[in-house]
């Protein structure tokens, strides 16, 4: 395992631990304001503040806010990616299994999605309906469903033409057995690799929406939302931008690096084309 992949995995573990237990690192609550301590620079960097990562414009502790933000971002990333993976893969599988009009309909849906970037769709829908966390999660979850649908359809069609599926049909195996026992396991790698490609995209969509002030709404917070609040104070309170931004970037980067490594391992045709 290359060093960068090890480092990425270590970072991912640390990130998850921080999201789960980060709030215990600090005595302050993430909504606890302290007007006396507004915009204090990070104590870690020698400002003398008792807040190691500083405070925001309402004197809230950045450690606590980052921990809660990481929690939300992680939740949205994992749940959202699962939504897209399940919907997209199921549609891809159905398209390949049914062919004909079903397939045409699903692939037209893919075309429509390709003509409308998901962030545009999300903004449009968010403007139409009252924002709720569940709606947001679902919209973000749709990220990349079309990629799953296309990839899984192609992989299923190719698996269907493999000799082992023909052999199963000749044996009289039921369609359910063929799909569950023989096709799905062989398509699973494709889904897994796509999962690692899609998760950074999901994270970036959520943080972007929250950064624009249209995603996760206060008093809830997420990494993007913290950055959104810090944006107007970029020059005098850089920590509000830099810390959450680095967390998002490193999270997306680690997942991508692990994903690339995984792809090389799982796809023998790509072996030897190491990334880094």
């Amino acid at each position: 395992m290359p060093l960068v992949v090890k480092l990425s995995l270590i970072f991912l573990v640390l990130f998850v631990l921080f999201a789960l237990f980060g709030t215990y690192l600090t005595p302050y609550g993430y909504r606890q304001t302290a007007l006396m301590h507004r915009l204090e620079a990070p104590g870690l960097f020698g400002s003398g503040s008792e807040y190691p990562l500083g405070t925001d414009a309402r004197g809230r502790d950045l450690v606590a806010r980052l921990a809660v933000g990481a929690q939300v971002t992680l939740l949205v990333a994992v749940a959202g990616t699962l939504i897209g993976a399940v919907i997209g893969s199921a549609l891809g599988l159905i398209a390949a299994a049914r062919r004909g009009y079903t397939e045409a309909a699903i692939m037209t849906g893919v075309d429509v999605q390709l003509s409308l970037p998901i962030i545009i769709v999300a903004l449009f829908v968010l403007a139409m309906f009252d924002s709720s966390f569940m709606l947001l999660l679902f919209l973000i979850g749709l990220t990349g469903w079309e990629a799953y649908a296309r990839l899984v359809r192609a992989a299923t069609l190719s698996a269907r033409n493999q000799g082992y599926v023909t052999a199963q049909r000749v044996l009289g195996a039921s369609a359910l057995r063929i799909y569950l026992r023989h096709i799905l396991p062989n398509v699973f790698n494709v889904i897994l690799v796509q999962f690692t490609v899609n998760m950074p995209l999901t994270i970036l969509l959520e943080t972007a929406l929250s950064f624009l002030g249209l995603g996760v709404q206060p008093p809830m917070t997420s990494l993007g939302q913290i950055m959104s609040e810090g944006r107007d104070r970029l020059l005098n309170a850089w920590w509000l931008t830099l810390f959450p931004g680095m967390l998002i970037f490193l999270l997306a980067l680690s997942i991508s690096l692990v994903g690339d490594w995984l792809r090389d391992r799982l796809d023998p045709t790509l072996r030897g084309r190491r990334m880094t």
């Binding site: 950074p200 970036l204 943080t207 972007a208 950064f211 993007g224 950055m227 944006r231 970029l234 020059l235 850089w238 931008t241 931004g245 998002i248 970037f249 997306a252 980067l253 997942i255 991508s256 690096l257 690339d260 990334m275 880094t276």
Partner: peptide, 28 residues
């Protein structure tokens, strides 16, 4: 080659609003 591949992962994982803010910050 390694640099380019590293750069492409970096570019993929970098949120553009964060990168933009960094550009603004370093510009200033």
């Amino acid at each position: 080659d390694r640099f380019v591949m590293g750069f492409s992962v970096f570019a993929f994982a970098m949120p553009n609003f964060f990168f933009g803010l960094l550009v603004v910050l370093s510009g200033a």
